[in-house]
């Protein structure tokens, strides 16, 4: 089996929620003297482990506060896990809140270099891809205008264009990108689809099970920081739907169960037949030998 692109190994993440926020010296001294600094430990992730191979597209499902975003941040390297480790191979591109690294006073052109540097690109690489980025973002002459005068759509378009100019090994998506107008959305979806086809590994967080089904081939359900289920998309997504419906099995699940029973029955019959066939062959061989011996013995006895 190939080496996994992403290995999440017993990762736990603890936050200290201080009961009262202490962020100035006076309070800190007074409270620590009185011994009043108390923390509520909060485990956002508990012992999460899974592996992804190249080309796997993992949907991360879970209710609000289940630890989805924390998991993404840990994988992206923004948060360091309290316990456990993350091993990744290749370049990670996080498409979380596009344009978070922009400087408002900088022009679009300058921000291409700045944000590119933040993502770890080299100068030569950005020089080479500059035209491609500008063209894809459709900003035209606005590229020389300071970002503060951009609309949010323009910012997101530029951010998307810069982030997706590389071919990453791991792509992190938080909700599906509603970038710009319908035409641009189509274009960006086509670009992402192109990356999927090339076998990029995807981590995708969404509340829409439909989207997860469409994009992913694997899924994980998080519940209060714990992995509830990890496996192939169809079964996991069904289970998730039933969880949000309060544990009632869905129509799809019932159908799945029925199909399962049918398949099981068929399979049992086939296996039974196959075994019988095999048995017949072996038993036949044994019987042949036995009978052969008996017949031979008869001949020997006759000639005594």
């Amino acid at each position: 089996m190939a080496k996994p692109v992403l290995k999440v190994d017993h990762v736990s993440m603890k936050f200290n929620l201080s009961t009262e926020k202490v962020d100035n010296l006076k309070e800190y001294f007074i409270k620590s003297l009185k011994g009043q600094i108390s923390y509520n430990e909060y485990w956002a992730l508990k012992d999460v482990s899974f592996k992804l191979q190249q080309g796997d597209r993992l949907g991360i499902l879970g209710t609000n506060g289940a630890g989805k975003s924390t998991l993404l941040k840990v994988i992206a390297g923004v948060l360091k896990p309290t316990e456990g480790s993350i091993v990744t191979r290749g370049k990670i591109v996080p498409l979380l809140e596009l344009g978070a690294g922009f400087d408002k006073q900088y022009t679009g052109a300058e921000n291409i270099y700045l944000y590119g540097a933040v993502l770890g690109y080299t100068k030569e690489f950005i020089d080479e891809k500059y035209d491609e980025i500008v063209e894809f973002s459709e900003l035209g002459e606005f590229i020389d205008v300071p970002i503060k005068n951009y609309s949010s759509g323009m910012k997101a378009r530029l951010g998307f264009s810069i982030a997706t100019v590389v071919e990453p090994e791991i792509l992190i998506l938080d909700e599906v990108l509603a970038v710009g107008d319908a035409a641009f959305r189509k274009k960006s979806e086509a670009k992402l689809q192109g990356m999927f086809d090339k076998g990029v590994t995807v981590l995708f967080v969404s509340h829409s099970v439909k989207q997860v089904r469409r994009i992913c081939n694997k899924a994980i359900i998080l519940d209060h920081g714990e992995v509830k289920r990890f496996g192939d998309i169809d079964a996991v997504a069904d289970e998730y739907v039933s969880i949000i419906r309060g544990g009632k099995p869905t129509k799809r699940m019932k159908m799945r169960e029925r199909i399962r029973q049918n398949v099981e029955k068929e399979l049992r019959e086939t296996i039974e037949k196959e075994t019988e066939e095999r048995l017949r062959v072996t038993i036949r061989k044994e019987l042949e030998q036995e009978i052969r011996k008996e017949i031979m013995a008869e001949y020997v006895n006759e000639n005594k």
Partner: peptide, 20 residues
């Protein structure tokens, strides 16, 4: 080494924006 270009960019940004 990987992020030295970022360092350069941040320095450049500081100087550029100071008197923009």
């Amino acid at each position: 080494m990987k992020y030295r270009f970022l360092l350069m960019e941040l320095v450049k940004k500081g100087i550029k924006l100071k008197y923009r």
